[in-house]
Each structure stands twice: as C-alpha cells, then as structure tokens.
Design a binder for these strands. Sequence first.
DNA 1: CATTGATTTGACCAACTGGTCAAACTCACG
DNA 2: CGTGAGTTTGACCAGTTGGTCAAATCAATG
Lengths: 204, 204
Amino acid sequence: MPAPRAPTRIQRKNRATILEAALDVFSRSGFRGSTVDQIAKAAGLSKPNLLYYFPSKEAIFNELMAGLMDSWLDPLRRLDADGDPLEEILAYVQRKLQMSRDFPRESRLYANEIVQGAPRLHGVIAGELKDLVEEKTALLQSWMDNGRINHAHPKHLLFSIWSLTQHYADFDAQVRLLMGDEDPFDAAPDYLETLYRRMLTPQS
Amino acid sequence: MPAPRAPTRIQRKNRATILEAALDVFSRSGFRGSTVDQIAKAAGLSKPNLLYYFPSKEAIFNELMAGLMDSWLDPLRRLDADGDPLEEILAYVQRKLQMSRDFPRESRLYANEIVQGAPRLHGVIAGELKDLVEEKTALLQSWMDNGRINHAHPKHLLFSIWSLTQHYADFDAQVRLLMGDEDPFDAAPDYLETLYRRMLTPQS
DNA sequence: CATTGATTTGACCAACTGGTCAAACTCACG
DNA sequence: CGTGAGTTTGACCAGTTGGTCAAATCAATG
C-alpha cells in the first residue's frame, strides 16, 4: 500500500469541485442516469482528468454518500433527552425542514437511492441509522409513557417527520407546479408546527 | 394512417405482460436506469419481439404513465363535498395508504419521475392534477371557513397526506429495515387516523 | 533555467444500449 | 393441407458509456 501523500492545493480544489458537480448531476438523474461526462462537464474538467482524481464513477458516488449521511443524521442526534419534549420535537421538525430548503439536492440524492431499494446504502441504514433510531424512539416512548406528549407509535412518528419535511425537497417539482407563485417554504414551517403541536400536546 | 386492426388474443396478452414487466423494471430503476433488454427478459420475450409490440422504450413508459395517472387521481376525486368533512378526509387518507400497500411499484415509479424533476409529467401535473387540486383545496377551505374542521393551509394539508401515505411505498426499503419484523402497515392506518383526527377535529 | 513530479488531454477500447431488418416460424381458417 | 397474416428471432448497426494510456503540459523547487 503506497503511503498516502498530502493532497496538493490543486487536488483539494478539484476534488471539491468534482463532488459539488457530482451532487448536482446525481441528484438530478440518479446513479445510473448520470454519466461521467456530465459530471466532468459540470465540473469544467475533461473526463480523463476527472478520472485522475477519482478512480471510478462509483467512487465519486460513494464519497458523496459518506459525506451526506453524517449531516443527515445530525438533526436527529441533537434531539435532547433533557429538553422539553414537545419543543424538542418541534425544533427537530424545523431543523429537518430547513435542511430540505437549504440542501434539496442532498435530499433528492438520498431519496433517489432509497426509492430504488437503497442498493448502495444497506450498510449505513441497517447500522448507524438503525442504532440512532432505536435510541431516539426509546426516548420518544419514555416521553409518552410519562405523559409529557401524546401517545403515538414512535417509529411512525419519526417516519412522518422525515416524510413531511423531505417532501418539500424531493417532490419540489410537483409542489412548485401546484403552488404557483407562492413559495412553499413560506407556510410550511407554520403548517408543520401546528400539525405536531395539535398531535402531540398532552391532552389533560 | 392505417385503420387500426382489432388486437388479437396474443397481442392483448403480450402487451399486458410487457406493461407488467415494465412496471417492475421502471419502478426499480427509473426510466434511464432501465434497459429494454431487462424489460424483455422480465416479460419472457426477446428484445425485437418486445419492440414488435411497442415502438420504443419511451412508448412503453408513456403508456404505463397514462394508465397510472388515472388511478392516481381517483382517490382524491372521490373526496365528497357532501360527506362529513373529517370522515371524508380520513377516508381519503386511508384510500391513499391502501394504494401504497397494494400498488407500491406504481407509487415508486411516480416518485422516481417527480424526484428527477418530472421531465415526462409536466403536462399532466400542470393540467389535470392542478385543476383537481384547485377544486379540492377550495372545498377544504370552505370546510375550514365553516368551522367544520380546524384551519390549516389546504395545499399543505394535501401535500402532507400524499407525503405520509406514499412514504410507506416510496421509502419501503428504509422503513422495513428500521421496523425489523413488524409490518409497517399494521400500525400505519391507526397512526395516520390519529394524526389527522387530532389535527383537524374542530376545537370548540 | 532545469528537472522532476503533478496535472491535463486526445485518441482509443470494449461493453452496452436502443432500435432495425430480413428471414423464419406459427397459427387460424378455408 | 395450403396459404397468408400474425409472430418471433438472430444478426446487425450506430451511438453512448465507463474507463485506459501514452504523450503533452504545467508548476514548484533547487
């Protein structure tokens, strides 16, 4: 195994440019629908030049995914057992919604993968994500058992949060066509806050 | 233009077989990720034979989509202005959830298209679907104005129903990995009924 | 400015893809 | 059984794709 050299200035810049371009292309067309040439052109490089920085199309994709998963899990990690249950959940919902607004390409890339059966993500989902979900659903369950929020199936509660927030990124094309001039993100925060407040506020 | 002949028995059978196989393949890999050969193999035909029944890959896809859109819009069409508002909405939610359970491939095919910007669906979405959405959101708004259900942004309400119900089909891979042995559709109907009941039941 | 390693590229290749076509085969019907 | 329309296929084609490679260019260091 050759000792890994420290990356040069040019290497750092070009690898970053390539990953940015790849995110754009992959999130628009999925893995199989994207070509190395498209990514190269989007990055302003020739195809052989791009392949000088990454050994293959799949390598680009995997590096992108690895970086993605971490920021993906972060909002859930920050769900704090010591905070006020309802406010914690509402804050989590808003964090996820912000991510849909600010990083729609990342959301679509992820969605593309899952819709197609997550062939390249089984590992992460079954591992890191599952562990985190088990931990946090246990927390939700304890909040419910203590009467601090209304009862609801905790896993389905999580699914619903992911689903509702990511919908604005993943189905952006549809949402915008149907909303016309109105920016979906104007009313979405309020809508989701109201929804979860009404659903989870403990009934006396 | 040649007069269209009545389809023979073999034609009817093979065209149906092809569409069924195409649904399977397209819903798993999207349009660009699927090959005519895959579809042909899945249908038990040779590629030239398949192309004897459909002029092109795109033609198969379009016919599939045309058939899909109709059954897709149907549950919303059946939202009845004369029924009890809350029960109508809850029934709509359950109809959509049933469709996710019974026709997950159709849901994923649709999702695949939208995530990639709906390049082949602009027409239908901007036309038929938009008209239907305008009609039904007006109905929802009137129910809210009359105090028969709680206030909420009607378009976001629709989006949330689509999102929550289709999630179980579109993200099936993730949902099942995280739920382990438990069948997601065991608790989902109850979860969604509770969610929308708490959210929409008019507050006195 | 010379040299050496890092970077870039045009030309190329093998595999795959959507689609064509003429020839062969099958089947219902007289 | 013969015949003509309906059906099936092997061989083929042109365009695209992921990836390679040797040669050319560039940049930093002494």
